[in-house]
Design a protein around this nucleic acid. Structure first.
Lengths: 219, 219
DNA sequence: CTGGATCCACACAGATACTG
DNA sequence: CAGTATCTGTGTGGATCCAG
């Protein structure tokens, strides 16, 4: 693919580098860390294997992704972003929040990507709201879990190393979306059962203060 | 098109709304103001008419673009962004600067879009560098011209109303790119003939201080 | 002239089966 | 696990034609 646009324009070049269906979603999933071929497949339900192969090759040629031979014992290869590819985090985040304003409540058949959630949380972090001791949270949604580490004014999503969470928070994607955008009060959600917390409730409340999505106040 | 990704994710939704080749370039050209069908065609050399028609319809369905019946005397229709579409300026700008880092020097056959230049300048404006009286600049490149109005700490690109420019600046796309990214000194460019200025040279120099592209310091 | 519609050839995406 | 091979749709490119 990639016949190009023939324009001397940064956007046109970006669209050439990120051309093809699924391309930016591959980048999104790699923004949370290196992944194997099959891990990418699992995070992108419906992508044909040959398309994933093509996108990875094209992104590699574009200098966005690189293959790396994995150390033993597992062997095999992992795909990871180059430095240049990692610089897509800001643009992708902006595009994501723009698109999120047209996300209604999640449907039954909607796939929930923990990579997408992790990315959104990174962009939703408000450092000035973070105080108190270092904390590790575990978010559970749709049978998957995601760990969040907050240390002083810095958040790591997903948490770089596995460990015991201080608080475990479980809710549906719809409930989480309302909680993180401030349209649903955590107290209310707890009493109504839309939110389950294992650990200090006040800690959970702090999480929803530190991470706040822009609210969907669109036309 | 638009079979969708089936994910509950803002980025996936954005990619669905902006799906199809040329889509974001259409948005880019509309970010500088409403345009007619044929004006869009001229700014997107190589786009087939049926593809432009399809993209405009899809963007209209997506709530990004709207058709408006044009007042007399010209009649006809113009396409313009909705409020939601205009909110793409930030994401598009970020993506554009990301892609611009992989723009070498312009080739012979590269088309120069004044819409792309206008957008890039909007994103490159440093309000704190703007002082002095209101000024209107005219940038000439590749046979096209673009007016820039700077008033206090605000820049309008392209200038909203036509008028007599205080300074006219002419250069090739390559020279402009180097001038705006600070890799080429305006004095040098003037003496070497890569830059022509009609008006106060100091004014031209100010322009290159107020508008500064992020430099291509990539790997 | 503007704003498309229509037709054709082709490249790419999707689906599935199969392999080192 | 990490793809390759193959077949089938459909979106794209390119040219041409047409109505207001």
């Amino acid at each position: 693919m990639n016949r190009g646009y023939g324009q001397y324009c940064g956007l046109a070049r970006a669209l050439e580098l990120l051309d093809g269906r699924w391309a930016l979603l591959v980048v999104r999933d790699l923004l949370t860390g290196p992944k194997r071929f099959t891990e990418l497949q699992e995070g992108l339900p419906g992508i044909p294997t040959n398309v994933l192969t093509n996108r990875l090759r094209e992104l590699e040629d574009a200098g966005v992704v690189q293959r790396r031979a994995q150390a033993r014992p597992a062997g095999g290869v992992v795909y990871e972003l180059t430095d240049y590819g990692r610089d897509l985090e800001e643009p992708v985040l902006r595009l994501g929040f723009w698109g999120a304003r047209r996300l209604g409540p999640p449907g039954q058949s909607d796939f929930i990507s923990t990579d997408a959630l992790a990315l959104a949380l990174r962009g939703a972090f408000h450092p000035e709201k973070a105080r108190g001791p270092q904390r590790r949270y575990e978010l559970r949604v749709d049978g998957k879990s995601l760990q969040i580490a907050v240390k002083r004014a810095e958040a790591t999503v997903p948490a770089s190393s596995p460990g015991e969470p201080d608080v475990v928070i479980e809710a549906s994607a719809g409930a989480l979306s309302e909680l993180f955008s401030g349209r649903l009060d955590p107290e209310m959600a707890l009493t109504s059962g839309r939110l389950r917390v294992d650990g200090d409730h006040a800690e959970a409340q702090r999480l929803f203060e530190m991470f706040r999505f822009p609210s969907a106040d669109d036309s």
